[in-house]
Write a protein that binds this DNA or RNA. Sequence first.
DNA 1: CCACTCAGTTAAGTTATTGTTAAGACTCGC
DNA 2: GCGAGTCTTAACAATAACTTAACTGAGTGG
Lengths: 225, 225
Amino acid sequence: MANTSRILIVDDEADILEFVQYNLRKEGYDTEIADNGKAAIEKAKKFHPHLILLDIMMPVMDGIETCRELRANAQFKNTIIAFLTARSEDYSQIAGFDVGADDYITKPIKPRVLMSRIKALLRRLQQEKDEHKIVAGDIEIDKESYIVRRKGKEFDLPKKEFELLTLLASKPGKVFTRQEILNKVWGSDIIVGDRTIDVHIRKLREKLGEDYFKTMKGVGYKFDL
Amino acid sequence: MANTSRILIVDDEADILEFVQYNLRKEGYDTEIADNGKAAIEKAKKFHPHLILLDIMMPVMDGIETCRELRANAQFKNTIIAFLTARSEDYSQIAGFDVGADDYITKPIKPRVLMSRIKALLRRLQQEKDEHKIVAGDIEIDKESYIVRRKGKEFDLPKKEFELLTLLASKPGKVFTRQEILNKVWGSDIIVGDRTIDVHIRKLREKLGEDYFKTMKGVGYKFDL
DNA sequence: CCACTCAGTTAAGTTATTGTTAAGACTCGC
DNA sequence: GCGAGTCTTAACAATAACTTAACTGAGTGG
């Protein structure tokens, strides 16, 4: 079994790098390290990691900024980025998702938790790769044929609507901020007005039913079952 | 430590329901029961159990079918499902895993075995899922879905209330000064009147119960268990 | 026991955010 | 280049969330 997912660890504290690297290698992952944002981006270009663990608090170029740059590069479109954050700076998570992070792991890092989180993240990557079908409630999404079914009835949605639906339904219950939606559906470089998202949501609601798409005012939208 | 995992027990035999429920409650679990598959799914939708104990042999809708339906719904993607089976029905065990069950427990049920199996199952859930959640007393805050649960009942709070609650509950017992609250929830640059915080506290009290939010006169508020 | 401060309570006022609509721009296949 | 379908926008309406202000009451110290 090839368990050789590549993981890039980025932190400015040498002992954390060592600690995390030690634990990951023990589990058979292929790891590289970087101690600042600039170096991280360079390493990432050569190393093509599946997953990047990114400390938020770093001198020179912090994790948020680094993540933004990575996401601006199409090469890293499918790379998973997870932030490492101190528990107290809880609120950075919000900014984190807005710049395109997939998850965050809080310090102090416990090996067992680290491992199970990483496994879960990589597992999901795998699943999304080879599962072209999402089932959520009584909605069924087929990514290959761009067809959505609900109670036997078929809809074929235009691209944007389909992608928006797919994003929301990929994690039912999770609230996606507007920024996050823009990043993932439109791309972090495209700029569209605020009402654009609403209009697409409205169309989805029209076609699939009001109740699936819940507005979290001031936060974003979520797919609700 | 709050041990209030929610467990739904499904069996058509009243004496088994009673027996299992008695034992689980004794250990401090929050339990609900259902005596058939249909009812189980309905209960599960409201009760949001962490774990479902599902008898295989039931009239109307058997455990296998029930499990299949539950698994088809992404709402229960992370719910643990364990079958209850008579030792002899080997075949069902295999079929059981095919529909996405996590474990099976054979009858006759011995309390001690039941407990240790349940604990092991819940421990696994804990490790994977907990990062986005704050659990304080019987209140459970899910930062990913912006949902607050209390004894299985869901509340969805507006943004400010949610953030205020999240802040206070992140360190139960700690007193947060008004200034501190303003800084973290509103931002240090925003200026709002003094009564604003009280109003939000009041709403939280209204929704979640008076007792959780203790006023420290002249100092601030704290979240009390 | 009065004056004072601080918190609780309301309801009304204000602001911010989202919903809706229709029109125009744009794309793509024909 | 034409038409069907798609996407974005802008203006406006609707609504939910938030803040305020005025009043009340409880507690405290002089």
